[in-house]
Design a protein around this nucleic acid. Structure first.
Length: 641
RNA sequence: GCCCAUAUGGCUCAGUGGUAGAGCACACCCUUGGUAAGGGUGAGGUCGUGGGUUCAAUUCUCACUAUGGGCUCCA
């Protein structure tokens, strides 16, 4: 029996070594017609198509369309890039070139920086190498021989890599057309020509082994596909993402802006503020339903507070400071310490627990200059933040409630796809094993009780407790971290918080940090990209635009707008002296959900004519009924127009 | 913080060693026009900030700031 492992980790068994056709027919449609190949060696009991095997093979099999196939192809493309770089720019040292989510990159060491023109030249050279369809051959080297070889070539990084390989691992190189080779464990495609379509995307700086103190490298990003069509499809997706970029939408739709004087700090325009406030209103309503008390806490604290909470020692680099009256103050980077002070300001009974304290307080965090990004990474923001103080035995129920709350919100916002990650105890942590067991158990049990699938990130928790991170998957299938839920045994201790239990003795509460939308700024940006700026009615800054065909219809329009306003809807009359088509175009570009067109017909009939953002047209509607309908949709936060 | 790139009217961008141009937006006029751009006229810029080179800098150069692509970071 010979076991053949397929690229998707499944396997098939064969009596004897199979031929291409036999393997192909056994896995049916999974075998794409343009296979990109991995080599097989017949004298094995197990044939592993998940990785490469020595050269004298008879069949090739990895399907190009399988994810693994693409990975192999992209990794080979990275090698071709490295060859191109070294041929075009002698003296360039190679380092590593792994496959990433939707492509690959290669890090080079070179004094001279690559320019955008170099990128084009590299791409051209790569296509040339691909066209040559050179064979890619694996060769196993003796470790010392390998070290000597790379040393002689001046490839210091490769030498370091080999020296770091465990003794058990063989040292192999892959040769391309006998003229170039790179240290690699494979696998690779058999011939460069199997890389059908490549594109170099961008240049960036990076560090050797991701270490800021080590050599600065130049990273070239690219992607590769099994066909031109697949590449084009991918590029179209990138194009779409660019169109949806919230920074662009923010400008186009006049929602927010930035200024040199306040790096990383958005100004929300009146329109943007409408959206922002609607989100806050929404969460406030939910707080009533889920039993939260909203509070307001100070913005600036004596740093003594942060010494107490541990933030000064652990988070100083991210805080803004100011000296007044000879005292050192800091803008709050998070609400929790303040909430602890507030909780401790008055004796609490167990009857008051769980105590859920919500706060839309503005936070300031100093982010390093290179990390700011639109609304998704800012220096000032506000979270839909809350801290729940409860007894340990209430933890699990609280978490269940929180996840229900979160799910409800995400569904109502049309964000039904999200992933949950459970981060467990890190190496550096506080608290006993027993407490950690219980806390992790509570999180896990809650997820199970709700039948929520999740992944575990071992050792990724905060030092004060385990956490759940919610990754929202947007319309373009990109992940965004929004919500978070963290158990904390540290702060209640640091602030010596307690409540009086039923036995009339003091007991320490557990604290839960949680945010559902995360930061409102970040959520704003992510939601814009998710919806491509086509916000639901209730969040649209302008809900209805009334457009007149000519001046004689203006009076009717004015009255109409007033009717909408009286119903609590946001409407405006575009009375400008422009043609209808022009006004429609503009309303359309501003992504206003409804346009109402008023001309002679409407004046005569008294009915109204509505054009939806989708282009759909509804004529002869009764005015009052339509207003009623919109009002209903606005109040219920309907996602449909 | 690091590497690279960018910075020109509100926006999108062209351009030049002799202090600037387009389209859109804006204002006014003509046009009264039925579902994605009617026409004309006009106003608007010390070309990111500060040095340097030069007879002369928006243009070359250096520094700084901001933004962008990444790295790193993200309690």
């Amino acid at each position: 029996m010979i076991k053949v492992y397929l690229p998707d980790n499944s396997f098939k068994e064969f009596e004897k070594e199979p031929t291409v056709l036999e393997v192909a027919s056994s896995i049916g449609s999974k075998l794409a017609k343009d296979t990109i190949g991995a080599r097989l060696n017949g004298d094995k009991e197990i044939i592993d198509l998940r990785s490469n095997v020595p050269a004298d093979s008879k069949i090739e099999i990895i399907t190009a369309k399988s994810v693994d196939g693409r990975e192999v192809l992209r990794h080979s493309a990275a090698h071709v890039l490295a060859q191109a770089a070294q041929e075009l720019f002698p003296g360039t040292q190679v380092t590593i070139g792994p496959v990433i989510d939707s492509g690959f990159y290669y890090d080079f060491y070179r004094e001279e920086p690559f320019t955008p023109d170099d990128l084009k030249a590299l791409e051209k050279k790569m296509n040339h190498l691909i066209k040559k369809n050179a064979a890619i051959e694996k060769r196993v080297l003796d470790r010392q021989e390998a070290i000597q070889t790379f040393k002689k070539m001046g490839e210091d990084f490769k030498v370091e890599l080999i020296e770091g390989l465990p003794d058990s691992e063989e040292v192999s190189i892959y040769e391309q057309g006998g003229e170039w080779f790179d240290l690699c464990r494979g696998p690779h495609v058999q011939k460069t020509g199997q890389i059908k379509a490549i594109k170099l995307l961008s240049l960036a700086g990076s560090y050797w082994r991701g270490d800021e103190t080590k050599a600065q490298l130049q990273r070239v990003y690219g992607t590769a596909f099994e066909s031109k069509e697949a590449l084009d499809e991918h590029l179209a997706l990138l194009e779409e993402a660019k169109k949806r970029d919230h920074r662009k939408l923010g400008k186009d739709l006049d929602l927010f802006t930035f200024h040199n004087y306040a790096p990383g700090s958005p100004f929300f325009t009146a329109k943007g503020t409408t959206i922002y406030n609607k989100l806050v209103d929404y969460m406030r309503e939910k707080y009533v339903k889920y039993g939260y008390d909203e509070v307001i806490t100070p913005q600036v604290f004596d740093v003594e507070l942060y010494h107490k909470s541990g933030h000064y020692e652990n988070y100083k680099e991210n805080m803004f400071f100011t000296d007044v009256d000879g005292r050192e103050f800091s803008m709050k980077p998070m609400n929790c310490p303040g909430h602890c002070l507030l909780f401790g300001s008055k004796k609490k009974s167990y009857r008051e627990l769980p105590y859920r304290m919500a706060d839309f307080g503005r936070l300031h965090r100093y982010e390093r200059s290179g990390v700011m990004h639109g609304l998704t990474r800012v220096r000032t923001f506000c979270q839909d933040d809350a801290h729940v103080f409860c007894r340990f035995d209430q933890l699990q129920d609280e978490i269940v409630e929180l996840m229900k709350f979160l799910n409800e919100v995400y569904i109502e916002l049309g964000m039904s796809e999200y992933k949950v990650f459970l981060s467990t105890r890190p190496e550096k942590r506080m608290g006993s094993e027993e407490i950690w067991d219980k806390a992790e158990g509570a999180l896990e049990k809650a997820l199970k009780a709700l039948d929520i699938p999740y992944e575990v990130n071992e050792g990724d928790g905060a030092f004060y407790g385990p956490k759940l991170d919610i990754m929202f998957v947007d319309a373009l299938k990109r992940d965004w971290q929004l919500g978070t839920l963290q158990a904390d045994f540290n702060l209640p201790e640091a602030f010596d918080l307690s409540f009086v239990n039923s036995e009339n003795t003091n007991e320490r509460p557990v604290m839960l940090h949680r945010a559902i939308l995360g930061s409102l700024e970040r959520f704003f940006g992510v939601y814009l990209e998710h919806t491509a700026g086509r916000l639901p009615l209730w969040l649209s800054p302008m809900q209805v635009k009334v457009l007149n065909v000519s001046d004689v219809h203006a009076e009717f329009c004015k009255n109409l707008v007033n009717d909408f306003k009286a119903a609590g809807l946001r409407a405006e009359f575009d009375s400008r002296n422009e043609k209808l088509g022009y006004k429609i175009r503009e309303a359309q570009l501003s992504k206003t959900p409804y346009m109402i067109i008023v001309g002679d017909n409407e004046l005569e009939s008294g009915k109204i004519s509505v054009r939806l953002r989708s282009g759909e047209q509804k004529d002869n509607l009764d005015k009052q009924e339509f207003i009623k309908e919109l009002k209903e949709k606005d109040l219920t936060r309907s996602l449909n127009l």
